[in-house]
Nucleic acid binder design. Structure first.
Lengths: 204, 204
DNA sequence: GTCTATAGTTAGATAGAC
DNA sequence: GTCTATCTAACTATAGAC
């Protein structure tokens, strides 16, 4: 890992623990093991470090979407495929994968916290946080459930209602268990329990 | 409103918009209309202002609990009374009241944001945020649903599962619509819709 | 690409006049 | 209780030697 990437990595860690304003360039440089003045050979300002992290988050989300089959081009098709053999275990597995991505991914777990802290101070972060973690997630779930209903795998309830019901507890648990690796098993147990109940009620 | 209270009020507003670290004593004093040095006649430090706000939050939550009949002494009894004549409209009304308290209460809407921002930097705020907005809320809902089930007003599903399912979408919507007064009607419409679906599925 | 040194600014906080 | 003046410390950022 080169110095530039190490700066970004340490900055993200410190930002997620102390906030952006609460983290000085000296703190970041110190964590990397260089002097604060040296850091300016890699980034022209603290702001540029933060902006680079936000840009990297967009990349990482794109990768994750592909990994989970949530990309724009393939989302519909994969969802349809998924519908073809929906079982409780598969649903639990998909939810666990998404959940653990946000909870444990080296980058995302820290970024989730930074986004939470900085959303009110940065319109760009507010947009990312609300669009990505709320609107788009709900939109994706709505689309998925809509197709599942069409395929006869879920009861015919308004998919938008199902989406909020389903995504809200994932969001709540992510917010609750972020930064608490010791309670991961508890988090997954609660998650599974809620998915099971959802399946029990809405599976056709 | 005396100067001391005006300082607290302006500080909370600025904290909720810029974060605690992002708000200087000069900013607060300026908003009140005095010099920063004068502010120190009322509070001995910026930290003391913040701590006072946290203390006030505890008071306000106590008042709210009493207003909504969620206090420790009366919670059980009121919940039982409430069970006695449960209707969809009453459930919607109770949820709306709680929801609007957090969304629109002069103090709480701003404090919600501050708590969100400062939770990782202040163990005390982390505790308040997670205990009050998560654990205790879930515990209250669990107790309420437990009694409703005993009274035969809800289907006999594990009340802890119902509590997470029910509270999670309230929490999600609070986080989503905080600071967006223009979209209040939309927020309430979504809220009602989710409550209706919950009632439809679980009402005995 | 790292260092030392330093400029320029702003922060939190105090002293003392009125 | 408010002001002006001031202190000290910390912060962002730059210049220039190696």
């Amino acid at each position: 890992m080169n110095t530039k990437d190490r700066i970004l990595d340490e900055a993200l860690t410190l930002f997620s623990l102390q906030g952006v304003k609460g983290t000085s360039v000296k703190d970041i440089a110190g964590a990397v093991g260089i002097k604060d003045s040296s850091l300016y050979k890699h980034f022209k300002s603290k702001r540029e470090i933060f902006d680079t992290i936000v840009a990297k988050m967009h990349e990482r989300i794109g990768e994750m979407s592909n990994e989970l089959g949530m990309s724009d081009e393939e989302g519909g098709r994969l969802a349809a495929d998924f519908c073809g053999h929906l079982s409780l275990d598969e649903l639990k597995k998909l939810v666990r994968k998404t959940f653990l991505f946000y909870l444990e991914d080296d980058f995302m777990a820290r970024f989730w916290r930074v986004a939470n802290m900085e959303q009110y101070r940065s319109p760009e972060v507010y947009d990312v946080y609300h669009r990505l973690f709320m609107e788009e997630s709900i939109a994706y779930q709505t689309k998925l459930f809509s197709e599942m209903i069409e395929g006869g795998y879920l009861k015919a309830i308004d998919p938008a209602i199902l989406a909020v019901d389903f995504y809200a507890f994932i969001f709540f648990l992510l917010d609750k268990y972020n930064g608490r690796p010791d309670e991961k098993d508890e988090a997954l147990a609660v998650l599974d329990r809620q998915v099971e109940e959802f399946y029990r009620v809405y599976h056709a």
